[in-house]
Design a protein around this nucleic acid. Structure first.
Length: 575
RNA sequence: CGGUGAUUGGCGCAGCUUGGUAGCGCACUUGGUUUGGGUCCAAGGGGUCGCAGGUUCAAAUCCUGCAUCACCGACCA
């Protein structure tokens, strides 16, 4: 491609509304443009990378036995009513009507459509298992789209759905997908981890997320420092502390803590570490039948954070997790949040293991601007139960039993689930089994955020000059940068010849034939992150040489003009 | 959905307090200059100041409503 005949669309300045580095660079390097909130146009350079990601995903899935289909993005409401998600999903599901006032949705995912297809087309156990995938645009009306294509409303996703008669068969496909995903992210050249995950609203049991590690990631991941264990922090179990709770040594006392509501304030005022303070959170509770039963108090160590997922799964806690309002707290305890505590509180008490291991601790006194010190379990608070309620923190013992946890941030680019029969049951997707009886299918589903991968790759691979694409997904492999070509026939001939030679050899070459100053061309090619640059200038050409520069390492070397092709072939053989 | 802020040429911004008919940098066009890291000089083109209404002799500027966009929070395969 000649840059003079291409839409380069690079920008020198950062657009004002881009926040994270990948968003800024995607705009500046001319990959995307915003159309409206959460909606992006992919420019030619962006499409090139997107297609490369798609290609790798497609190849690895095909290799793993999945079969490509393409389903409509517009879906009829009946299917969603049948699965129950027409009612379950909120405004995230974009609904609209056609000219006959029939209800439709813009597909945020395709479980309904694929399950409908399978129940019509598959009638015998002999046709199973089956794993179908598509690469399709999704629409989710996110409450708050942000970070460019990272959390867009319209985005490109690979979604696969597998159908089985047995858990063993599902597990087999699940394992194959796990391996295929690992292969995909390895080929993409990304630093990633597969982590244990919650299956969330989609339902199901076993689930792994694939995360690209990046400090800007929205998710926190817990790793063991001495095993393969990795889990989303929302899933990582916090083990109860070892050993016996220390015996009480202080007596209960009430102290005045004016203007000290937060754990930090109280710790500073009383000169105790936050870990010696217990904080109390009041949430709505429920009974065994899931009916509202008033309030429940949750207690955590002052330096720990509530894990909403764990709390919500506790049988005494109402779903969804709902915090008591300030007024409710005051009515219940006689004090405002910041001064509440478990002593004398007449509601069920669920205490995190770590908080339950404290002795002589500090907590609110249920009297405004007062706290209790020297508080001890059993002696001062008789009735409570313990549970795992907190987020793990760096340094916690790993739930796998080996090593301690380390926390890092990641961007979720893939998610695989064992769905079970949630959709097949609701939509009556079954086949005749070997006994000739109808059997409901069990399902798996497997997603990859194709457009998000682009942003994640940039978050992980950039420097102050711009993007540093991994070879496998760079929009172009080689940039030819001639110095003052428009003044030198020699340079023009050398550049044209190299361009032709490399292009014919199958390389994707961007030939910067613009009548621009060298600095402009260098800056643009580096901003775009083209991995391999060839600079043609008068002084090297005297020795029949050109300069090669590697974008990532910055290494420069001189190449004989007639060696360029073989050099590039050896550098790019794997791509 | 709650809070905060923004909207002036393709991009980034000033002007608004104190109303008088729009400006800067980059980009773009033309000519010259320069030529291995975003040159320099000169001349140009491009804006119903987000939309609607109001106040006024006069509105980018003051008032009201609406829309759009972003950030923080809640939410989220």
């Amino acid at each position: 491609m000649r840059s003079s005949q291409y839409l380069l669309a690079t920008m020198k300045e950062n657009p004002a509304d881009a926040e994270i580095i990948s968003h800024k660079l995607m705009l500046r390097a001319g990959l995307v443009r915003r159309l409206a909130s959460g909606l992006y146009t992919y420019l030619p350079t962006g499409v090139r990378t997107l297609r490369k990601v798609e290609r790798i995903v497609r190849e690895e899935l095909n290799k793993a036995g999945a079969i490509e289909v393409l389903m409509p993005m517009v879906q009829n409401a009946e299917l969603w009513q049948e699965s129950g998600r027409w009612e379950q999903m909120d405004a995230e599901l974009l609904r609209f009507q056609d000219r006959h006032q029939r209800d439709f949705v813009l597909g945020p995912t395709h479980e309904e459509v694929i399950t409908d297809l399978i129940r019509r087309e598959v009638t015998s156990y002999k046709q199973l298992p089956l794993n179908l995938y598509q690469i399709q645009t999704k629409f989710r009306d996110e409450r708050r789209p942000r970070f460019g294509v990272m959390r867009a409303r319209e985005f490109l996703m690979k979604d696969a759905y597998s159908f089985h008669l047995s858990q063993e068969s599902l597990q087999q496909t699940y394992n194959a997908m796990y391996q295929a995903y690992s292969n995909i992210f390895t080929r993409l050249g990304l630093d990633f981890r597969a982590v244990l995950a919650d299956s969330g609203a989609i339902g199901g049991s076993v689930s792994h997320e694939f995360h690209v590690l990046a400090s800007s990631g929205e998710d926190a991941i817990a790793f063991s420092d001495s095993s393969d264990y990795a889990a989303n922090v929302e899933m990582a179990a916090a083990l109860p502390p070892q050993g016996e709770r220390p015996a009480p040594s202080q007596s209960l006392a009430k102290v005045s803590t004016p203007n000290a509501g937060s754990v930090e304030d109280v710790a500073a005022l009383l000169n105790v570490p936050p870990a010696q303070i217990a904080k109390t959170l009041i949430v709505r509770g429920c009974n065994e039948d899931g009916e509202d039963s008033g309030f429940v108090a949750l207690m955590l160590r002052g330096d720990h954070q509530l894990n909403a997922l764990k709390a919500e799964k506790h049988p005494r806690v109402a779903q969804p997790l709902t915090f008591a309002t300030d007024a409710e707290i005051e009515a219940l305890t006689g004090a405002q949040p910041g001064s509440i505590g478990p002593v004398g509180l007449e509601i069920p008490l669920v205490v995190d293991h770590s908080a339950a291991h404290l002795s002589d601790f500090v907590c609110g006194a249920n009297q405004n601007e007062h706290h209790l010190t020297g508080v001890n379990w059993l002696r001062d608070i008789a009735d409570f139960e313990t549970s795992d309620l907190r987020n793990v923190v760096s340094g916690d013992a790993s739930p796998c039993g080996q090593g301690v946890l380390e926390i890092r941030r990641g961007i979720e680019v893939g998610h695989i689930f064992q769905l079970g029969d949630k959709y097949s049951q609701a939509m009556k997707a079954g086949v005749l089994n070997e006994e000739g009886k109808n059997q409901i299918l069990t399902m798996g589903c497997y997603g990859i955020g194709v457009s998000r991968i682009m942003a994640a790759a940039i978050e992980q691979n950039h420097d102050e000059h711009g993007i540093i694409w991994p070879d496998a997904i760079a929009p172009f492999q080689i940039a030819i940068i001639p110095m003052n070509m428009h003044k030198s026939v020699r340079i023009q001939q050398a550049a044209e010849q190299l361009y032709q030679q490399l292009t014919e050899a199958g390389f994707e070459v961007l030939f910067d034939d613009r009548k621009e100053r060298p600095g402009v061309m260098f800056a643009d090619m580096e901003l775009m992150g083209i991995p391999h640059q060839i600079v043609i200038g008068e002084r090297n050409l005297d020795q029949q040489q050109v300069e090669y520069k590697h974008r990532r390492s910055g290494d420069k070397s001189l190449l004989q003009l007639d060696q360029v092709l073989t050099e590039m072939q050896s550098k790019l053989q794997s791509a």
